[in-house]
Design a protein around this nucleic acid. Structure first.
Lengths: 354, 354
DNA sequence: CTGAAAGCGCTAACAA
DNA sequence: TTGTTAGCGCTTTCAG
């Protein structure tokens, strides 16, 4: 049987050069004059192999241009060294940065990321998750779409280690890494209060989002702590887009008792708010204060530069990846909800520089 | 032998529920009372199977929560349905959009994208490509880093179907999809000329980049066509960043015979240019005209809104993915260099609205 | 330290 | 139409 397969092999390896076939481990082994097993050990840096044979094998690998087949290896080891990175919307720089942070950490640890962009729809997310599972990922990093059904997540969680990022999921006990939305928003609002504002609006974000709820909580906490009343008329939801912020602030400005400052759901909304203010004849940073959330790259150079809460998405991505890898190593780890500290980046849009 | 393995199987499937193991095709087959082969046919939607048995199998799949193992299948079929998406920098919205377009098309065709961000360094790119190859991708979509060694690309190309996006590679005969940089820039510059500008600078971009060379060519063509002399002092390279554009325009403004308009390497540079102009007391769109390239989302809402050349990165990503899939089907296809048409989006920064 | 043999979960010829 | 039998390229005991 072994003789047979050897014969086969030499036939094939002769042909393979000219066909689609790739060089296999056994070709390397033959070339180096060792067995498959030994060659395999060399590849995986085992210390059980003599320096001499290691070099021989390495030389053959180089010479034949061998590329390791992880798929085949994974069939045996049940490890793919791939993880699913399922994200709502990479065209949002915040999520892009998250993805980059995660990818960087994974890459460094020898993992590869299977990317799927869900455009925030539950259907595409479901499809993507299925695909990613079929590819045998060792774990999934999920930034859940807004309308994610909890039981779907529960099933996923049963199948494979799972960490959720930036949007927490209620009703399922899984790891979560995101910014500390409550404290971050509180920081922003207190800054506004400290600079004399009394009527501070909370602008934008979708009603169902966990992030918005948490930020709203921080907003209320800041008001309360400073003895200010919560006024429902200063609250307005919106699309997470510039247009959303734009119309939101305009509607707020129409009211008889309009605000003098806005804590925004995020930077993108804040940009819209500032554009809206300008359209209405205000000068953000002078006669109206604006604070954002996320500190995306644009915030620093927007005219005027946006005061914003920084959640460090790159780090969140990294931490999430690292947590996932830990969990893959030790599936019994208890789950953790990590809310990374935020800090306030004071620029000009809040008027505090004057 | 077969009896033995069956025995094995039933043992395992009993345990598997509680261990890490997943449900396998053979479990499904047993549950449905058919052979593995038949079950396999059902999964792959073969028409060679009766409606009755198909339903039985489907029911078992559902019941047991079976998930297909593409890794194992791929070992046999030599198809992974995965493709490598190796991109310089997703945090640049232009490339993010490219990636999204590609991912969308791949997803629709049943492929998954292995994402790697190279941060524009040749080393990480080399590592990423290797990893992606080890994972057995059926093809690679590469947006090459600036200093990519041509022989590396050649090796890659020998190993796997390859399409390059947005940055062409000299010295290797591979498919390329990108914007028509020459015509696009020409469009922009001619617009400027049509509005009376005679001293038009070409601002920014890295010296070695193929994209910059092409855009520069378009710039020169436009000048020539309109009888304007090319003046080397109106040319300045820069980092592809706002800061790059900022300092570039400032240095240009110092000259005794400074320009009245700038065709910029891309939108990001253009933003820097506008910020620099404002810092120097100019009002872009009034006393100085600026045109960008890429039409990223920010361009529309920047104050003033940026006149720019639109290359439709989402479409480029889609087309590239589709070309790659074609090439995977038919490896003998002759290579094509596609430069997708660009059009000029006239907004306010060029002053043409006055 | 190295080699032989068995098998990971699937598909593809070929029989039945 | 369905079942049988061999592998895909690797790792992993277990002997040497």
């Amino acid at each position: 049987m072994d003789r047979e397969s050897r014969v086969n092999v030499s036939h094939q390896s002769a042909k393979d050069k000219h066909r689609s076939g790739r060089v296999r481990l056994i070709d390397v082994a033959h070339d180096a004059g060792v067995s498959r097993a030994t060659a395999s050990l060399v590849i995986r840096n085992s210390s059980l192999v003599s320096e001499q044979t290691r070099e021989k094998v390495l030389k053959s690998i180089e010479k034949l241009g061998y590329v390791y087949n992880r798929g085949a290896a994974g069939l045996r080891t049940r490890q793919s060294y791939a993880i699913g990175l399922v994200v709502t919307d990479i065209s949002n720089p915040y999520f892009a940065e998250l993805a980059i942070g995660a990818e960087a950490h994974l890459e460094q640890s020898g993992y590869v990321a299977l990317l799927a962009n869900t455009s925030d729809t539950a259907e595409k997310q479901a499809r993507s998750l299925e695909t990613v599972l079929e590819h045998g990922v060792d774990g999934v990093l999920l930034c859940p779409a807004d309308q994610t059904p909890p039981d779907e997540v529960a099933r996923l969680h049963r199948l494979v280690p799972l960490v959720s990022i930036a949007r927490s999921l209620s009703g399922v006990d899984i790891d979560y890494i995101g910014p500390d939305n409550v404290c971050g928003t509180q920081l922003g609002v207190e800054h506004l209060i400290a600079h004399g504002h009394q009527r501070i609006a909370f602008v934008g974000g979708p009603l169902q989002s966990s992030a918005r709820e948490e930020r709203l909580k921080g907003y209320k906490a800041a008001l309360k702590k400073n003895g200010l009343d919560f006024d429902k008329s200063l609250l307005v939801t919106s699309q997470v887009s510039r247009n959303g912020g734009y119309s939101a602030i305009l509607s707020l400005l129409e009211s008889s008792n309009s605000p003098t400052a806005a804590m925004c759901y995020n930077d993108i909304v804040a940009f819209g708010v500032m554009l809206g203010l300008q359209a209405a004849g205000y000068t953000p940073g002078k006669d109206f204060a604006v604070v954002g959330f996320d500190n995306i790259a644009d915030a620093a150079t927007w005219p005027p530069p946006l005061t914003t809460v920084s959640g460090d998405p790159h780090k969140i991505g990294e931490v999430a990846a690292s947590r996932l890898l830990e969990r893959i190593q030790q599936p019994t780890l208890t789950t953790k909800q990590s809310r990374l500290p935020c800090n306030l980046i004071v620029r000009e849009s809040c008027g505090a520089h004057t």
